[in-house]
Design a protein around this nucleic acid. Structure first.
Lengths: 343, 343
DNA sequence: CAAGTTCGTGTAAACGATTACAGAGGTGCG
DNA sequence: CGCACCTCTGTAATCGTTTACACGAACTTG
């Protein structure tokens, strides 16, 4: 069936050991012999059997990536960041996505181990405790945006800080009553952004916060419109936990003839590419997603190749406030500018 | 280090053969023995070594997915579709994305083989010829949205048909001079949509087509505005090869005070989630991306497990015209409706 | 009760690579 | 010349599974 190292050896009239040495660049081999082996391998389209190799080397050169049900930009950017770095270092990616419950996620952890050298885990469903139980001693894991305990390396985006900064920005523009449109309560990004909102509001003595349920989808932003306009002490601004919801809301406002930002200011979170192309351009918080992925891969691979008993790393990546015109103040700015970044 | 089948066998006081039989559900084993083995395996957190297993069974239960540089919705939806189906069938996914040139893609084909049982390939860079040369005889491959020749199974979205349908729709609304905003010329989806546009225009005797270069990004839609408004025989409508560009263009129009659809009609392609939440809601062509992925996985797995010399499959998945208000006619429709679908 | 069948289990041979070890041949040096 | 020491290559053990085959025990059947 598939061509093995033995056939290459026969073709080049040498032993399998020599073929292996040439192909892995180890040990001294005569130039002429090496050349003969290489052409034989090429002619036969030889590719080493990954399984056989990993059996003896005890390495798979593969990273596992465990993701929850994710949509759109975030998912693709993250994988892209991971993939680019991993490939550059010669690693493959075994991806498992769309997990919606704990049992499924924990099952995948088991299924993946024995096929990968390390794991990048995003699923908020996976309990660190269960991870430890299902993995061999000192199996390298990097937790991303996941509450992790001290057992593993972990990477986080500064959702809290970004939210604080955004609220401060809105307050500085004169908004007093700022509502918050929440993400899913099980999502850590969402809860951290909420925490930041509360913190910044409290810090300015605004304790009358208004929090509306949402689920990160456009439609829940659209539906939040009704509740925002109800009641007598109507807010003047709303901070959505992500851009998708902000855009859904923007749409609802536009239908009702409510002008943004004059009648109502809107801010989002994530700075998805489309944020600058809605009308008005959306003020948001930029999250370095691809960088997050690349960094995760980097930390994991470093952990793989280095001293296994080193200290656990815990990093937070900064977000960046991107001011456009949906919150007012900079509405006349030309579109071609990507917004002003501070922080 | 890692716990092997031998240790499980010792723990349960049986031979490795019996452990293997129990864990794979093959061969007759006494109920009591099986129970003892299962608890031993659980207690030791035993997981079989994938490499060793694939060495003897000659299967990896892993599918390779080769993707070009993709962004946003398309990427995540596709992977989701593939992953859900594959996992359900017990397969893992080895993903390699973000390939921008031919050499890189073809290198990955080589790197993947020997680690996967079959390949799903989207990269337009990979020449079927090179695929054949780099893969073993009768290696299962499914080409998705890729010009493939008869050598492999292939799946396509009916980009051509969708574009034809959209242009007909626009013409039926009374638009005469319809411009087309192109995607990248190397992208097959883009060229098929262009071909559909030309076909439908010709079929109505409109040979004065107007084609503007673009690259699928929002920004190129934004920039197309200038060229659309220049010249004296200005079009009354524009069909963008994807939604992102349509939205960029919409934004540019809004800034210039051009009303959509009254002054200028816009249509897109893809029906990304946000399309219904821009103002006005975007008329588009819905593409069943997740279904495309799932179907690709299905065809590949079928090919893996079935008679290896069966006929090559070639399928086209239908698109669906989604009428909203950016082309006029149905502007007063309530937002909650997702648009009218025909086709 | 002998012979065949079935059941439950163990023994050992694969699978395809890497690599420790050994050996052959050549070279340098005392 | 003899010994040590390179350089190059081959032999064979090894990794952790699966599975063909063998074997004993228990059971069926004529």
């Amino acid at each position: 069936m598939s061509v093995t190292i033995r056939e290459v050896a026969r073709e080049a009239s040498v032993s399998v050991a020599t073929v292996s040495r040439v192909l892995n660049g180890k040990g001294p081999v005569q130039a002429e012999t090496a050349r003969r082996i290489r052409t034989a391998a090429k002619r036969l389209h030889y590719v080493p059997h990954g399984g056989a190799r990993s059996l003896i080397t005890r390495r798979t050169t593969t990273l596992g990536v465990l993701l929850p049900e994710l949509h759109g930009e975030f998912f693709s950017e993250l994988i892209r960041g991971i993939d680019v770095y991993a490939r550059q270092k010669g690693y493959h990616l075994l991806v498992s996505s769309s997990h919606s419950d704990r049992a499924e996620s924990e099952e995948m952890v088991r299924a993946m181990r024995g096929r990968v050298d390390g794991l990048i885990v995003l699923s908020p469903d996976v309990r660190p405790h269960a991870l430890k139980a299902n993995l061999p001693e000192r199996f390298p894991v990097v937790l991303v945006n996941t509450a992790g305990g001290a057992a593993f390396d972990s990477l986080t985006v500064d959702n809290f800080g970004g939210a604080v900064e955004m609220v401060r920005h809105m307050i500085s523009l004169g908004h007093g009553r700022i509502a918050f449109l929440q993400g899913p309560s099980a999502n850590r990004d969402a809860t951290e952004r909420l925490r930041g909102y509360r913190e910044a509001m409290a810090e300015h003595g605004k304790d009358g916060t208004m929090e509306i349920a949402g689920n990160f989808r456009e439609e829940s932003g659209y539906e939040a419109c009704r509740r925002l306009l109800a009641g007598k002490n109507r807010p003047t601004a709303v901070f959505a936990a992500n851009d998708s919801m902000a855009i859904g809301l923007l749409c609802a406002f536009q239908e009702k003839g409510i002008r943004v930002p004059q009648d109502f200011a809107i801010a989002g979170f994530d700075d998805i590419p489309i944020a600058r192309y809605v009308t008005p351009p959306l003020t948001s918080v930029s999250v370095p997603i691809a960088e997050l992925g690349a960094r995760a891969a980097q930390v994991l691979i470093a952990g793989l190749e280095a001293d296994p008993v080193r200290r656990r790393r815990r990093e937070t990546l900064a977000t960046r406030l991107v001011v456009r015109s949906s919150c007012g103040e900079s509405g006349s700015r030309p579109r071609s500018a990507s917004g002003t970044a501070y922080g």
